[in-house]
Simulated scan of single mutants.
Amino acid sequence: MLKKAKVLIVDDDPLNRLVLEKTLRQDYDVFCVESGEKALTFLKTQPVDLLILDIVMPGIDGYEVLAQIKENTTTNMLPVIFISANTSHDDEAKGLELGAMDYITKPFSAAIVRARVRNQLMIKQKNDLLEMLASIDGLTEIPNRRYLDENLSREWRRSRRDHTPLSVLLMDVDHFKRYNDCYGHRAGDDCLKKIAHALVGSCERGSDFVARYGGEEFAAVLPSTPAKEAVAFANKLRNAVNKLSIPHKASLNSEYVTISIGIATTESGQVYAEQTLLEEADLGLYQAKEAGRDQVVSRLVSATLQE
């Protein structure tokens, strides 16, 4: 069963809220608040698919709510429909210039509201699909490097703000060039697909994130994960690949395909840049290879590396 889209109605008039809610509740999950302040608080805790926003309200007006939504990276793509008793073309133009997707004047027609909401949600659905396709690796069908970078940047900012641990893993398929030379590139592609699915299948927490980093490399971002837990998770990933038992007669360290893993962890979130974690994880990966491969090496990002 498909999940219903979530629509948030923001209007200080209880009658307007009631009418809009009754108009839309059959097709969508509808939420109502009576002020701009409550709307912004609501959006911090619960994502929605569309916002129907009154302009003239006590406290923060609709224009200011929209401005704050557009400044926030987690809500700046949220489609907003202004609904207002103001019929001035200047007011409508201002709303559209600020980033609103549509403008409905009061008194409104229920049929018009339903049609415009449906149109905006269809546009959002298509945009979300395009965004998802742009973030998926074509071969392995798991998140790609672009999505990894976005996810790491977001989790790094949260880690700095909340002073929570953050771990990054870089993984490399051992002697993969020799595998391709021995078995052919089609077999190599199948090997990467199997490994990708094994890595993703090992993630139990919704916040854990695995992506293809490039070539035969994969990466993982583990929010709120200290070094000890990151090492345990890395060994879980390594064992998952070992259990695939993919033959690799050209390997120099095993008769089966294996992976080496480097880990970088900040325990308190005070890392100067997210790139620092990637660089330290890459050093750990190098050390794991030097130590004989099919290994996990963890590096704690210290204060001397943060400045």
Rank of each mutant, 00 (worst) to 15 (best):
207 S>F: 01
207 S>P: 04
207 S>Y: 02
208 D>G: 07
209 F>C: 10
210 V>F: 05
211 A>T: 13
211 A>E: 09
213 Y>V: 14
214 G>A: 07
215 G>K: 00
215 G>P: 03
215 G>M: 04
216 E>N: 07
216 E>A: 13
218 F>Y: 12
218 F>K: 03
219 A>D: 11
220 A>Q: 04
220 A>P: 01
221 V>F: 05
221 V>I: 13
222 L>A: 11
223 P>W: 05
224 S>P: 00
225 T>M: 06
225 T>V: 09
225 T>Q: 05
225 T>P: 02
226 P>C: 10
230 A>G: 13
231 V>K: 03
231 V>T: 14
232 A>G: 07
233 F>S: 08
233 F>D: 14
233 F>N: 06
233 F>M: 11
233 F>W: 04
234 A>E: 09
234 A>Q: 01
234 A>C: 05
235 N>A: 05
235 N>F: 00
236 K>N: 15
237 L>H: 06
238 R>V: 10
239 N>C: 06
239 N>P: 02
239 N>L: 05
240 A>K: 00
240 A>Y: 02
241 V>I: 08
241 V>E: 09
242 N>V: 06
242 N>Q: 11
242 N>S: 12
243 K>M: 11
243 K>F: 11
244 L>T: 13
244 L>P: 06
245 S>K: 05
245 S>N: 11
246 I>T: 14
246 I>A: 10
246 I>V: 11
246 I>M: 06
247 P>I: 07
247 P>A: 12
248 H>Q: 13
249 K>L: 15
250 A>F: 02
250 A>L: 02
250 A>P: 05
250 A>G: 13
251 S>T: 11
253 N>S: 15
253 N>H: 08
254 S>T: 09
254 S>H: 06
254 S>K: 01
255 E>R: 02
255 E>C: 05
257 V>T: 14
258 T>R: 00
258 T>N: 08
258 T>L: 02
259 I>D: 12
259 I>V: 14
260 S>D: 10
260 S>W: 01
262 G>L: 02
262 G>E: 10
264 A>G: 12
264 A>L: 02
264 A>W: 00
264 A>Y: 04
265 T>F: 02
265 T>D: 10
266 T>D: 13
266 T>S: 14
267 E>W: 00
267 E>P: 02
268 S>N: 14
268 S>F: 05
269 G>Y: 03
271 V>N: 06
273 A>G: 09
274 E>P: 01
274 E>S: 13
274 E>G: 06
274 E>C: 07
274 E>D: 15
275 Q>N: 12
275 Q>K: 08
275 Q>P: 00
277 L>D: 13
277 L>S: 09
277 L>W: 04
277 L>M: 05
279 E>C: 07
281 A>D: 13
281 A>R: 00
282 D>N: 08
283 L>M: 13
283 L>E: 15
283 L>Q: 13
284 G>W: 00
284 G>I: 06
285 L>E: 15
285 L>A: 13
285 L>T: 12
285 L>F: 04
286 Y>F: 12
287 Q>M: 10
